[in-house]
Amino acid sequence: MISKSVKQSAWFFVIPVVFLVAFNALIPLMTVVNYAFQETFGDNVFFWEGLTWFEQVLNSDRFHDAFLRQIMFTSIILLIEVPLGIAIALSMPRKGPWVSVCLVLMALPLLIPWNVVGAMWNIFALPDIGLLGYSLNAIGIDYNFTQQPISAWITTILMDVWHWTSLVVLLAYAGLTAIPEAYYQAAKIDGASKWAVFKWIQLPKMKRVLTIAILLRFMDSFMIYTELIVLTGGGPGNSTTLLSIDLVKLALGQFDLGPAAAMSLVYFFVVLLICWVFYTLMMKNEQQ
C-alpha cells in the first residue's frame, strides 16, 4: 500500500459547494420538513405532530381532486404535444435558408415570460373583448372560460400546447437531423414507404431525445403554476385548481403551514417517483 499524506486543507476547497448546496437546497427543504411534522403558532414555538398533517392531506378529498385534475391535465397535454411536436418536426425543412426561420419561429413561445403567456391567453380568450373568445361567441359557440369549467380546461390546454409544443419540436428535430442521410437512401432502395421509414428508422432513432422531451414535459406540466394562475387562477370554482395552485391556496391563502408543508413533500415525492419509474422503464426498454 502506498500511504498518502492526508491534507486537511482539501476541505477548504469543498466549503463553497457545501454552502451553495446548503443554502439553495438543503436548508429550504429542511424548513419544509420542519413544518410538515410540527405545529407552530409563530414566535418560533413548535409542537410535535408526527404524521398528522400527512394523514390529513392524503385523506382529504380536496387533495384527491387536485391530484386527479393534475393527472388528467398532464396526460392530455402529453398526448397532444408529443405527437404534434413530432409531426411538426417531421414537416420542417432539413436544410436550406428556411431552417433557421423555422427554428426561430418555433423557439419564440419558449422565450416569452410565463406570466406574459398567461396574460396573453387571458386577454386573447376573454369572451367580450378577446379575439378568440369574441370570435367563438360570434359564430354561435357558447364559450366563456371564466364561467364554464370545460371552456377553462380547453383554454388551459390550448395555452400549454401553444407554449410548450415547441420544446418537443426542437428536441425531435435535433433527433431527426442526427440521422445520417444514408439511412433514408437505404430505405429508398429497399422500397420502404414513408410510414415504414418513420416507424422503423426515424422513431427508433429519436427515442432518446423523445424520452427526454416526455420527461421534461411531464415534470413541467405537473408543476405548472405561473401561466395557469394568471389565466384562470384555478377557477371557475376549483375546476382548474391543479396541485401547485391548490398548494399555494393552502399555504398562503389559508396559512395552513403544516398541511401545506406535508403536501409539498408528497407533491415532491410524487414527481420524483413518477420520473424515476418512467426513466427506468424507458432505459430498460433501451437495453433490450
Binding site: A182, Q185, A186, I189, G191, W200
Partner: peptide, 19 residues
C-alpha cells in the same frame, strides 16, 4: 430506385435500429 433492383452498402453501418 425501387424498380432498378439494386443494393447499396455504405461506409456507415446502416441497419434498421429496432430489428
Amino acid at each position: 430506385v425501387q424498380k432498378r433492383n439494386i443494393a447499396m452498402v455504405y461506409q456507415e453501418f446502416i441497419n434498421y435500429p429496432n430489428f
